[in-house]
C-alpha cells in the first residue's frame, strides 16, 4: 500500500491525542521549573518535586544521588506509553531504535576497547541488549540482528579490521542510524517527523562544523561525520569548512538556522562555551515541535510529547546535578533552556 504523505488525519488517534493532551497538562511549566531551580537545597528541591508526577519514583530511591534511576524510570514510562498509543509502530519504533544503535556503539567500543561498560547499555531498545552484545562479540552471530543494525555493524567491522579510533565507531553508526530513520519515515510517509529529522540532521551538521573547527580538526573527518538527508546539502556544508568562522553565519543566511549560528558563534568566541548553541538548538527543535499542537488527530502530538518529556527530564537532571554539587541558583537558571516551556 502506498503510504499517505500527509500530516496526521487519522481519527483513530483521537484517544491517544486526548490522553497526550491531558498528560501535557502535567508537564512542568516554566514557572515551576524556575521555582525548582531556585530551591536552594536538595531537600527543598525534593519536597517541591514531590508535588509533581515525579513523586511516584521519589519514594523508590533512598538517596538523591540515584536521580538517574528516577529519570530513567520516567523515560521508560514515556517510551512504553508511546508504544501503547501508537497506531504506526514503525514510526514510534524509531524512538526505540535509537537505543538499539546506542547499544551497538557500546558493544563495539566494549569489544575494541576491551573495557566492560555494563552500565552504558540502555534496555529500552527493540532488541535485547544481550543479543546486540553477542552479535558484536562473535561476528558470525550478526545474522540475528535486524538488517539496519547488521549493516551498521558491517560498515564498522568492514572498514576497520584493526582497532578503529573510537570516534569512527560513533560517526559510522550515527550515520547509519539517521539513514535508517529517514528511510523509515519516507516509507511510512510522515512529513512532520521527516521535517523534525531533517532539522536535527542540519543542526547536528552545523554544530559538527563548529565543534571540529574549534578543536582544529581535519576537513576529511568533518566530511565523514556529515549526516545525509538534511535540508542543507552535505556538499554545501563541506564547502563551509574552509571559510573563516565569522563568515559562516552569512553563508547560512538563507536557512532558518542563521540566528542560532550568529548568536551561538558569538558566545563560543567570547565565552569558549557551546552553551548558547545547545540552548538555541533545543529552542529551534521546540519551535518545530510546537506545530504538533495544531494537529488534533495523528502521531504528531505523541512525538511532540516525547520530545517535551525528554527536555523536561534533562532539565530536572540539570537541577539535580547542580544542587548536589552546590552550583549557585543563578548559574543553574542560566542553563535552563529558554524556548521549551
Amino acid at each position: 500500500m502506498e503510504a499517505q504523505w500527509e500530516y496526521g488525519d487519522d481519527v483513530g488517534y483521537a484517544y491517544a491525542v486526548g490522553r497526550i493532551r491531558a498528560l501535557e497538562t502535567r508537564l512542568l511549566t516554566g514557572e515551576r521549573i524556575a521555582r525548582l531551580a531556585e530551591a536552594g537545597s536538595i531537600d527543598e528541591f525534593l519536597r517541591l518535586l514531590g508535588e509533581t508526577q515525579y513523586a511516584e519514583f521519589l519514594s523508590k530511591v533512598s538517596s538523591p544521588w540515584e536521580y538517574e534511576t528516577i529519570l530513567g524510570e520516567e523515560m521508560e514510562g514515556v517510551v512504553k506509553l508511546m508504544g501503547d498509543l501508537s497506531r504506526d509502530p514503525a514510526l514510534t519504533d524509531i524512538f526505540r531504535l535509537r537505543y538499539d544503535f546506542h547499544n551497538l556503539k557500546v558493544a563495539l567500543k566494549e569489544n575494541y576497547g576491551g573495557e566492560p561498560m555494563d552500565s552504558a547499555y540502555i534496555t529500552l531498545g527493540t532488541i535485547p541488549v544481550e543479543r546486540v552484545r553477542e552479535s558484536v562479540r562473535e561476528k558470525e552471530g550478526a545474522v540475528v540482528l535486524p538488517s539496519h543494525l547488521r549493516a551498521a555493524l558491517a560498515s564498522v567491522t568492514g572498514v576497520f579490521p584493526e582497532t578503529p579510533a573510537p570516534k569512527w565507531i560513533d560517526v559510522i553508526v550515527d550515520r547509519a542510524m539517521f539513514r535508517t530513520f529517514v528511510s523509515i519515515v519516507k516509507r511510512e510517509g510522515c512529513p512532520f517527523l521527516y521535517g523534525l529529522l531533517q532539522g536535527e540532521i542540519d543542526l547536528i551538521n552545523i554544530l559538527s562544523l563548529f565543534r571540529i573547527r574549534w578543536a582544529n580538526g581535519e576537513k576529511s573527518f568533518f566530511q565523514e561525520a556529515l549526516l545525509e538527508d538534511g535540508t542543507i546539502s552535505t556538499d554545501f556544508m563541506s564547502s563551509l569548512f574552509g571559510e573563516n568562522l565569522d563568515a559562516v553565519p552569512a553563508r547560512l543566511s538563507h536557512t532558518p538556522y542563521v540566528l542560532m549560528v550568529t548568536e551561538g558563534l558569538a558566545h563560543l568566541q567570547t565565552q569558549e562555551s557551546f552553551l548558547l548553541f545547545e540552548k538555541m538548538r533545543e529552542a529551534f527543535l521546540f519551535n518545530y515541535i510546537r506545530r504538533a499542537d495544531l494537529i488534533a488527530f495523528g502521531i504528531e502530538p505523541l512525538i511532540a510529547y516525547l520530545y517535551k518529556k525528554e527536555s523536561e527530564i534533562r532539565t530536572i537532571r540539570t537541577i539535580f546535578v547542580g544542587l548536589l554539587n552546590n552550583v549557585p541558583a543563578e548559574t543553574l537558571k542560566e542553563r535552563m533552556s529558554g524556548g521549551f516551556f
Binding site: 481519527v11 483521537a14 491531558a22
Partner: peptide, 17 residues
C-alpha cells in the same frame, strides 16, 4: 465515537473531567 475516544483518553489520566 471520535469525540468519545478523545474524551476517554483525557479521562484515563484525569477522571474528574
Amino acid at each position: 465515537s471520535t469525540a468519545g475516544q478523545a474524551a476517554d483518553g483525557v479521562l484515563t489520566e484525569d477522571p474528574d473531567k
